[in-house]
Nucleic acid binder design. Structure first.
Lengths: 117, 117
DNA sequence: TAATTACATTAGCATCTACGCAGATGTTTA
DNA sequence: TAAACATCTGCGTAGATGCTAATGTAATTA
């Protein structure tokens, strides 16, 4: 598929060629979509926003977000797999915090967009 | 619901209270999730990435991304509704470009995260 | 005016996703 | 060791999503 061109029409071949030449590997778009998917849920957005200022355990997150601990745990697995949050184990408690600053920036830029649209 | 606290347990009440006090309106998280949802599809990510450097029509985008014009059109409606892309009409052609710079920053920050995880 | 073109919209489908529930895992305490 | 506890995991269901195919709409052209 990659390398083919539009079967039916090419309205602006030079622009199409230029755009095709600048495209990333397909894998990159899948990765992008995967990261954005992790943020594309209001409860996960709440979880992440809560973690901007505090390191919290699963139960506390359930309290703050207002969903079951099981649901929180499943959301955290998704976020952990993508390295958006990191886990610190202390006995039977698991404390979560943001893995790095990228994630906070993503929230900020997106909130900025919402504010100005 | 909002204003309630965890029914069953409060392991760190002071942290829970602090976190609850800093939370945004529920509407904000829904908005965030909606924006991120728009980016949470690899074909839409391709569309947006294509538009970083070029203004393209629907057919050209279909060529570049490798999906049907109908599918592109549906994706563009989603992106247009959220003001992520803007449309310029010229006769029967519709040219699309990024609405503002936030969207490009979101892609860049996310790619940066992917690179360093 | 009729046909063509470029895009938009709709319906139907297959697939994906979030949630709650029930049970499992691993840790601490009695 | 047994009980309590915090978290994790597997599964079923209801709802959301993306695609194709068919149809609609508006602008151009014969």
């Amino acid at each position: 598929m990659a390398g083919d061109r539009c079967k039916t029409r090419e309205i602006h071949p030079e622009k199409v060629d230029a755009a095709r030449g600048e495209m990333l590997d397909d894998r990159k778009y899948a990765d992008l979509a995967e990261i954005f998917s992790a943020l594309a849920d209001s409860n996960r957005a709440k979880i992440i926003y809560s973690l901007v200022h505090h390191e919290l355990c699963v139960c506390d997150l359930a309290c703050v977000v207002g969903i079951s601990e099981s649901a929180v745990s499943q959301h955290l697995r998704i976020l952990r797999t993508l390295r958006l949050v990191k886990q610190r184990k202390d006995g039977r408690m698991a404390f979560y915090s943001l893995n790095d600053d990228h994630i906070r920036v993503l929230l900020d830029v997106c909130l900025e967009h919402i504010r100005h649209r």
